[in-house]
Design a binder for these strands. Structure first.
Length: 298
DNA sequence: CGGTTTTGACCCGCGC
DNA sequence: GCGCGGGTCAAAACCG
């Protein structure tokens, strides 16, 4: 029974790492720690610079806005008058097609009567970049459409096609598609109403060559923003529908909106997490912080 | 054969 | 009232 006293059955939970490693390992770890801390410091500085740049840009934007109160008032007034919203599309090539590219017929489109109708039916515009050789007025949005008319409008030599949802009359959604008068490779699709059914085909909805990001409102917000992958992001904002000289400002406001910034943040996070280099740097930075805290405690 | 597209005719609101 | 222009209808053509 005495030999039990020779055994130390206690658990030494207060393990000191320095006991487990020899001197060379310790020095290597210290060097690594220094390197990681330096990198962490560098990343922190970069972050600080980015924040400073952001603040400076934001201040410039606010200053610009304060210097142009008239334009701001016009935008505000238009927002009050119109319940509709338009959309701008960012093509996969990251070309932002803002509302100023819409044809002049779009101006006519937002006449007084339709302003009233906008209360009943949600109207939005989607810009889709197509191949120059593509002469069809087909905007693949995942829904099935039946063409019921085509018309050549006054201010645009390109005909305007009229579509109804194939589920009509149960689904009241209509769509008008016309090439932009300024850039005929851009299709302008104007949606009226919202689908009351699911999208027949989500695969067809967003072919890789035709994916776009829609700003402002689009019809069927939920269906477009869900199950379509990260390439289609819908921000349901209330924006003026008419192309105006203030479109640049409007676009700026859109970009400055919380929704867009949230989208940007998600996209950045998505891109960064896909970057193994960033992962490694982040892990190093975090480990640096953790080890730093640990060593401070030690 | 059924669904879709085409296309000319028609409707309707708006401005003059 | 009339003309204009956008939107819709509906018959014929087309297609799978």
């Amino acid at each position: 029974m005495e030999y039990f006293s020779l055994l130390d059955t206690s658990l030494d939970l207060n393990i000191n790492p320095t006991r487990l490693i020899d001197e060379t390992q310790t020095s290597a770890l210290v060097e690594e720690l220094k390197r990681v801390n330096a990198e962490n410091k560098r990343l922190t500085e970069m972050l600080t610079v980015m924040c400073e740049n952001y603040t400076a840009l934001r201040n410039q934007l606010l200053e610009y806005r304060s210097k142009n109160p008239v334009a701001e008032q016009v935008v505000s007034r238009k927002r009050k008058v119109e319940s509709t919203a338009t959309a701008a599309t960012i093509h996969p090539t990251n070309n932002i097609v803002n509302n100023s590219e819409s044809s002049s017929t779009d101006e006519e489109y937002s006449c007084k009567k339709e302003r009233e109708e906008h209360v009943k039916a949600k109207i939005s515009r989607v810009y889709v970049k197509t191949e120059a050789s593509d002469t069809s007025l087909v905007v693949k949005d995942g829904y099935q459409w039946r063409k019921y008319g085509q018309k050549v409008t006054k201010d645009n030599p390109c005909p305007r096609a009229y579509f109804k949802c194939s589920f009509a009359p149960s689904c009241p959604v209509k769509k008008k598609v016309q090439r932009s008068a300024e850039d005929q490779s851009v299709l302008v699709a104007t949606y009226e109403g919202e689908h009351n059914h699911l999208r027949p085909s989500t695969l067809e909805a967003m072919p890789s060559s035709d994916r776009c990001m829609t700003l402002n409102s689009v019809p069927c917000t939920t269906s477009l923003s869900s199950s379509s992958g990260p390439t289609t992001i819908t921000l349901d904002l209330t924006k003026p529908s008419n192309p105006t000289p203030n479109d640049a400002k409007t676009a700026t406001q859109t970009v400055n909106s919380p929704e867009f910034q949230q989208f940007l943040a998600k996209q950045m996070a998505y891109s960064l997490t896909k970057d193994p280099g960033f992962k490694a740097a982040l892990a190093a930075a975090m480990s640096g912080r953790i080890v730093d805290n640990q060593t401070a405690k030690w």
